[in-house]
Amino acid sequence: MSHVQNVSYQNLGWETSADLYLPPAFDEKRRYPTIVSTHPIGSCKEQTSGNVYAKALAEQGFVVLAFDASFQGASGGAPRYIEDPAIRVSDIRFAIDYLVTLPYVDAERIGAIGVCGGGGYTIHAAMTDHRIKALVSITGVNFGRLIRESFSEFDPIGALQAMAQQRTAEAQGAPRHVIDYLPPTVEEGRNNGINDIDVLEATDYYKSPRGQQPNGATSGLFSFNSAAMGWDAFLQAEVLLTQPLMVIIGDKPGGFGAYRDGWEIYGRTASKDKHIVVAEGWSHYDLYDQPEPVRQALDALVPFFRERL
């Protein structure tokens, strides 16, 4: 069995909290291939990025770091629940900064994975941090596109105006407006006319014992979401993303757009060594924790990393 150490390290002006998953029969005198695992938006390190993928990769002989995003989970930073893509990408760089100080981490064999929004952040981080030697996006989502489209009800300018008003009000002393991205239950979502597979399955994962964790807040600070509006996870991929890339998606498309985003980055990347794995008959949230699609993902990504790290 792998084992887990909780660690913390310096970020910009606060501490990051992370779980370090170590392989069975771990020997700190050895040097291991190592992977940074980035959680979805509204998630935390104890959910799919940690307890599913980091755990499984550690059992296959990798050291894996699953961390909480700045302003979220057990990591520091204020105000809480900021989802700023530039800082989320910076978090991945700081995770690598920490890992390369560890004597048992081979700095020349560092890979990265991310789930959902974490997949988009991992892709963007790898473009500008070539310490990442290979990467896998698991049902990855380009949060910039998502917030310009369905999250703003296809009215990005109207949303930006509302965010601007709210940020001014908060600067002048109004309480922070923290939105929950999901309904409280699947039933309430359906009763309110929600029929999108991604929203309903996200609610089933995050709001029930299936995936619920104390720090999986599914929340965002509305006034600070404007930072994502002008951001694109895939910008400059044709020039800068040259490392080996694997994209894993389910073939049941939903409103968060991982299926289309997966094919888009697969087509756009400059990587010569690129692969797309489509889990047929499975959805975005099936790839978070359901045994069969997770097995399909691991059967692809474990040998991918073994050969390239």
Rank of each mutant, 00 (worst) to 15 (best):
S2M: 06
H3F: 10
Q5C: 12
N6T: 15
S8T: 15
Q10N: 15
N11P: 14
W14N: 13
W14V: 05
W14L: 14
E15C: 09
T16L: 11
L20C: 01
Y21A: 05
P24M: 05
A25G: 14
R31Q: 11
Y32A: 01
T34S: 12
V36C: 02
V36S: 00
S37K: 00
H39C: 04
P40N: 13
I41Y: 14
G42N: 04
E46A: 04
A54D: 02
L57H: 05
L57S: 10
V64Y: 02
F71Y: 08
Q72C: 15
G73N: 05
S75M: 04
S75F: 01
G76V: 02
G76I: 09
G77S: 03
R80I: 04
E83N: 01
P85I: 02
I87N: 13
R88T: 12
V89R: 01
S90V: 06
I92H: 11
R93Y: 15
R93S: 14
A95Q: 01
D97Q: 03
V100S: 02
V100R: 05
T101P: 08
Y104C: 01
D106M: 08
A107L: 10
A107G: 07
E108T: 07
I110D: 08
G111F: 05
V115T: 07
V115N: 09
G119E: 07
G119D: 05
T122Q: 03
A126T: 07
M127T: 10
M127S: 11
I132H: 03
A134R: 06
I138N: 01
T139C: 12
F143M: 12
F143C: 15
L146V: 09
R148A: 00
E153Q: 13
F154R: 10
P156A: 00
I157Q: 12
L160F: 15
Q161P: 15
A162H: 13
R167S: 06
A169N: 05
G173F: 02
G173H: 11
A174E: 09
P175S: 07
P184R: 08
E188C: 08
G189Y: 08
R190L: 06
G193L: 00
N195Q: 13
N195L: 13
T203L: 06
R210G: 13
N215I: 07
T218E: 08
F222E: 06
F224L: 11
N225G: 13
A227G: 07
W231A: 09
A233Y: 03
F234M: 03
L235H: 14
Q236A: 13
Q236E: 13
T242P: 04
T242S: 08
Q243G: 10
P244L: 08
P244Y: 09
P244N: 04
V247S: 03
I249G: 02
A258Q: 11
A258H: 14
Y259T: 12
G262S: 09
Y266N: 03
R268A: 11
A270M: 13
A270S: 08
H275M: 09
I276W: 08
S283W: 10
Y285G: 03
E292N: 06
F304R: 04
R306F: 13
E307D: 06
E307H: 12
R308H: 00
